[in-house]
Design a protein around this nucleic acid. Structure first.
Lengths: 205, 186
DNA sequence: AGATTACTTTTCAAAGC
DNA sequence: GCTTTAAAAAGTAATCT
């Protein structure tokens, strides 16, 4: 009986330590990403729900914590790409994506696809582009997405191409390499999306 | 106008069977030309047939998995070749061991571009998985028939998980009517 | 700037770790 | 869970010319 009691304490302590570790990791990654406190709170709620639903069994605590943060950023409307998330996590991109899809499905998070426009302000400010470019990029995204051009495309690449196109149209040109670097996509992807977008917008330049 | 069912094409059939006999894969690998056997990496021996094209995984237990065939007919033809090859190695194989189709992969074309964002909302976020950052296809799991469909922006789709060719036809019918009801086709 | 190759997703069986 | 085998869809990416 004493053994059982000790075991319970041990399990409880271990569980408590694991939870604290997960929450501190979420805090550390959130700080590194520079996201507001509200995102960390949403992430910790998601993590606790995953814990309660026993979704961590067979998965790493880090992986679930990182995925919870990725989901929280999207839920709060300030998405970070898996690439950006993986840079502050010790879990690799593929594993974060896989774990995220699992907890999202199991917890019924009903995540809407990321709107490329959500990346425009952050990418543009990193490139020191004006408000005018941002407005133009949003317009390109809005118009071309309505025509169905967004289907199946990565939101970061889509946003990057629109920003590149807008920078040209507003005479604040950034090179494909500069935009590719902040969006963390390749120049090839920007070129491909850019061609489709300007064609759909009926722009010739 | 044209029925998307007409565009269905079987791309891959996976089936399992077995000769009720244990095999010494090491010696089979020696005698069977073109056989790939690396037990450190995978316990099965790989044998590829040319016509029809397929890959057979042969196990120590005598169980065999055939993949890559383009029809259930090709599966039977391919396995007939494998059985004959084993008989050439003086291994007794019954005339027609039972062959069970485990999975059929099909492709089809709805003939219209699809707005996957609208479809994701329309079909219900709880029923689908659409993560374009990770994969361009929208994953839609059907209960009847029990298959998984991958929908793409081009209107092309992949149906997998079915055991019979009809499963894909029923799935395409259901998907088309669901999308039509939602007004998301065309 | 192409072209090529390769990897992402789904499905399924097999035997073994 | 993983390992291997096959196949399609379309997007992204790395590498070479």
């Amino acid at each position: 009986r004493l053994r059982k009691w000790q075991e319970r304490i041990r399990t409880k302590d271990a569980g408590e330590r694991n939870l604290q570790f997960a929450l501190s990791e979420i805090d550390r990654m959130a700080s590194a990403l520079g996201v507001p406190r509200s995102v960390r709170e949403v992430a910790s709620v998601i993590y606790r729900r995953a814990l309660k639903e026993d979704l961590i069994r067979g998965r790493s605590i880090e992986g679930v914590a990182t995925s919870a943060l990725y989901a929280a950023c999207r839920k709060e409307g300030i998405p970070r790409s898996l690439e950006e998330i993986s840079e502050v996590s010790r879990v690799e991109r593929k594993e974060i994506g896989r774990t995220y899809r699992y907890i999202s499905q199991e917890l019924g998070l009903e995540m809407k696809p990321v709107d490329p426009k959500k990346y425009v302000p952050r990418f543009c400010s990193e490139l020191e582009l004006s408000e005018e470019v941002q407005t133009k990029a949003n317009e390109i995204i809005e118009t071309t997405a309505e025509e169905g051009l967004l289907s199946g495309k990565s939101p970061t690449g889509y946003a990057a191409a629109a920003i590149y196109a807008a920078s040209l149209l507003c005479n604040e040109k950034k090179t494909q390499r500069e935009v590719a670097d902040v969006a963390q996509v390749t120049e090839v992807t920007i070129r491909n999306r850019y061609q489709e977008q300007i064609e759909a917008m009926g722009i010739h330049s | 106008m044209s029925d998307p069912k007409e565009t269905i094409n079987i791309e891959n059939v996976v089936a399992s069977t077995g000769i009720g006999q244990e095999l010494d894969l090491q010696s089979v690998a020696m005698d069977l030309e073109g056989a790939d056997y690396d037990p450190e990496q995978f316990p099965g021996l790989v044998y590829r047939t040319q016509e029809p094209k397929s890959a057979a995984l042969i196990f120590r237990s005598g169980k065999i998995v055939c993949t890559g065939a383009k029809s259930t007919d090709d599966v039977h033809q391919s396995l007939r070749i494998v059985f004959d090859k084993l008989r050439d190695l003086e291994i007794n194989v019954n005339e027609d061991p039972e062959i069970v189709v485990q999975n059929i992969v099909t492709s089809a074309d709805l003939g219209h571009n699809l707005n996957l964002n609208a479809i994701a909302i329309g079909l219900g976020l709880e029923n689908i998985e659409y993560e374009p950052e990770q994969f361009p296809g929208l994953v839609y799991r059907l209960d009847d028939p029990e298959v998984v469909a991958l929908l793409f922006g081009s209107g092309k789709l992949v149906i997998t998980g079915g055991k019979k060719p009809e499963d894909a036809e029923h799935a395409v019918d259901k998907i088309v009517s669901r999308l039509e009801d939602l007004g998301l086709l065309e």
